[in-house]
């Protein structure tokens, strides 16, 4: 029993990584109605920017704040420059765009900062959290940040005019334009916010997986899995999905013989497909009530 509890706790701790990334995934899905495969690379790049600022002597929180702003603006710039011109193009064109973006960011990061792994500091330290060996203060801090982010997003979408306009533009662009919403800018704003959230995820993940240009590959797939499990339309679902995926992954690794680290990734993919087949809207996705 103790093994079980411990594994669940450890799963929640890793789950926080996925939850945070899943929030960024949901954010972009809300804005553009599909997934951004380059999201992990954008987060990685942001994390390098933070690292660089700290190398230049800036304190952690200063670098954190500037990175947020950099990422927000960067997300908007990427949308305006690359994806706005593709607005009317078919989905496959977008996918090609995402892959190109992925490759470009990855190699620019590699050229600038090379591929050796780097230490990235944690603002929360890495001592045992409340005396527990399984969860560190960093992991606890990460869970806390994810939850705070979730609450902020909830307030933004539920209680602010911009949040309402973004939801409207995402669900019914034509009606949104007919109430005077500039839907094109709402998409750009979605990119900016997703990039900023992704940068938080990157900066929190980096102390765990170490900073290098390929650090986000696996994490993004788990982030997708978490978002799909939770339902792509629901930030709360994404966070719960993140924790579930973390716990699931740990339990499977512990109790099913033969599932080592190599098999964990296929398990995430299997999870995505299973949920999509059984419950296409995810566990917490909105079912839309329609009356004709």
């Amino acid at each position: 029993m103790e093994l079980f509890t411990n594994q669940v706790l450890a799963g929640i701790a890793t789950g926080a990584i996925y939850a945070c990334m899943a929030l960024a995934v949901v954010m972009i899905y809300q804005a553009i109605d599909h997934l951004n495969f380059a999201q992990g690379e954008m987060a990685m790049f942001s994390t390098f920017v933070a690292w660089q600022m700290m190398q230049w002597g800036m304190p952690y929180w200063g670098a954190f704040a500037l990175t947020l702003i950099f990422s927000f603006v960067g997300g908007i710039v990427i949308e305006r420059a690359l994806f706005k011109p593709l607005a009317k193009a078919p989905v496959l064109t977008h996918v090609a765009g995402f892959i190109a973006l992925f490759a470009i960011i990855n190699s620019v990061a590699g050229l600038t900062w090379d591929f050796t792994i780097k230490q990235f500091p944690s603002p929360f330290g890495s001592s045992p959290f409340l005396g527990s060996q399984l969860i560190s203060t960093h992991q606890a801090g990460m869970i806390g940040v994810t939850l705070v982010l979730l609450v902020l997003l909830f307030i933004f979408f539920r209680y602010t005019r911009v949040g309402l306009a973004m939801r409207a533009a995402a669900t019914l662009p034509e009606s949104a334009r007919l109430v005077g919403i500039n839907t094109s800018w709402m998409i750009a704003l979605g990119w900016g916010m997703a990039a900023a959230i992704g940068s938080i995820a990157g900066m929190l993940i980096a102390p765990v997986v170490f900073l290098e240009p390929n650090m986000m590959g696996g994490v993004l797939i788990y982030g997708f899995a978490a978002a799909v499990v939770g339902g792509l339309s629901s930030p709360l679902g994404a966070v719960i999905g993140g924790f579930l995926v973390g716990v699931f992954e740990n339990l499977v690794g512990t109790y099913i013989p033969g599932v080592g680290n190599e098999l964990k990734l296929p398990i995430a993919l299997a999870l995505i497909i299973t949920v999509l087949v059984v419950k296409p809207n995810g566990l917490f996705g909105r079912t839309i009530v329609k009356r004709v």
């Binding site: 939801r167 409207a168 669900t171 034509e174 839309i288």
Partner: peptide, 10 residues
């Protein structure tokens, strides 16, 4: 608009 354009999920 024709069809009303209601934001049905809101």
């Amino acid at each position: 608009p024709q069809g009303r354009g209601t934001f049905t999920t809101m």
